[in-house]
Each structure stands twice: as C-alpha cells, then as structure tokens.
Amino acid sequence: MTRPVIGYVTAPKGDILLSVLVDAVIRLSGGKPVRVKREPDTVARRFDGLILMGGLDIHPSRYDASIEVESLFDPDRDALETSWLQHAKDHDLPVMGVCRGLQMLNVFYGGDLHQTLDPDMTRDWPNGPIGYAFFRKPITLTGESLLADSVAPHESVWVNSLHRRAVRKLAPGFHAIACGERGGVQAIQSDTAPLRLGVQFHPELLVYRRDMRRLFRTFIKQCQ
C-alpha cells in the first residue's frame, strides 16, 4: 500500500532537531513526511494530510485582537500556516495541530485565544529546559474522539502541556475533546469529516508511549 504523503510545518528557519524527530515519527507511523517551508502555490507535490507543529505565539491580529502580553511572534509562519490550512480546507485534507498548531487551527476556523493564563493554573509549572522535559499534568477526555480512541480505555492521561496561551472561544464546527485538571481546553476536534484534530501537548516527545504512537498512526490512517 502506498504511504500517504504528510506535509508538516515547523518554524520556516531552524527547528532542525524537531524536524528530524517529526520526520521519524511520521515514517514509523506509516506516512511519508515532507517538511513544508513554502506556500501551497509554490509546491508541486500532492499531500494527503497536514501536521502543524509547536512554536512561537500566533500574532493576536490573526484573531482580531490587540497585543495584551508582549511575546515572540513569527508573522511569516502565521502566513505560511494560514495558507496551508486554506489548502487543506479546499482539498478536504485531514489536519493535526500540535500545541501552537491547535491554536492556529482554532484561529483559522474562527475561534480565538487567551493571551495569558490564570496564574493559579500555571503556579507549579517549570521554566527551565530540564523541568520542561519532565513536566506532566493530567487531562480528562470528554466524549468520543480520535484521541480518546488512541488512549482507550483510559479517561484521563498525563501529558506535557506548558504553552502559556490557550483556546478562549472555540471555533464553530469544533468541540473540546479534553480539558485540564484546573480547566482550559487541551484538545479539539472537528464535528464533521475530514478530520481536524488539535492537541495542546506534544505527542512527538512522548512517542516512547504506546498511546502516543497510536495517535500518530491513527491520524495517518485517516489520510490514506
């Protein structure tokens, strides 16, 4: 059987180690990975699915808001991902968004974001790279979803979610499929096909776990 071609977006410049990891995860999950650095009209290759990875914050102008909290933004990547989400919409391609990717998926389809989280929610979050690597928090699954199928029969799962921004208003046509212990949307999925799935954590860094490998495999099967 021909492997589905999966385009994935990281930062247009840098993110070499992340790209190597995502490339390997897609291959091990049954897909053929292609890192996307240019907009769709400059890419001749056909894709069967799209994955948007983590990264810097989305500029608030993308969801008609002013800057409330100073942050690092990447307008070029915002534009690149928006063009690919439009391409995926036009061609009925399945999409998976990871961390920032979930937020871009929500913004593209008409939702918006909290630019900062309640301090009570983040009070025990680490700041350094070592703490980031080992931090886990529980999320609770809410109803049927591809994520729930991947981690079944469990109704909660420990994940590595540390992004300081989050979904505020959910995009029309989407529902929350997981929430945090202290509140907040941790995963979303489209109400209808084709699959649009977003997770606020980083499954690519948890692929030593069977449930996270199953999540990638199940998504890529949707792309065939």
Rank of each mutant, 00 (worst) to 15 (best):
I130L: 14
D118P: 09
D124P: 04
D120L: 09
I139Y: 02
L113E: 09
R123A: 12
A176S: 15
I130R: 08
M104V: 11
F174A: 03
P119G: 04
A152Q: 05
D118E: 14
D112T: 05
M121Y: 15
N127G: 15
A171F: 12
P129R: 05
T142E: 11
W125G: 01
G143F: 08
V151K: 02
D120T: 02
Y109G: 02
F135D: 03
T140V: 13
D118H: 10
G111H: 11
V159I: 14
R136N: 09
V107N: 06
P138R: 13
L113K: 12
H114R: 12
L113C: 14
H163C: 04
V157Y: 02
R168N: 13
F174D: 01
A166M: 12
Q103H: 14
R165G: 00
S145V: 11
E144A: 14
K137C: 04
G110C: 04
R123G: 01
V167F: 08
W125Q: 00
L113Q: 14
D124S: 08
Y132I: 08
Y109V: 07
D112C: 09
R165A: 07
D112R: 11
L162A: 06
V107C: 10
D120C: 01
M121D: 05
T142S: 12
I139E: 02
D118L: 01
P153M: 05
G111S: 11
A178F: 08
Q103W: 12
F108C: 07
H175G: 12
R164D: 13
M104E: 06
L117W: 11
V167M: 11
V157M: 11
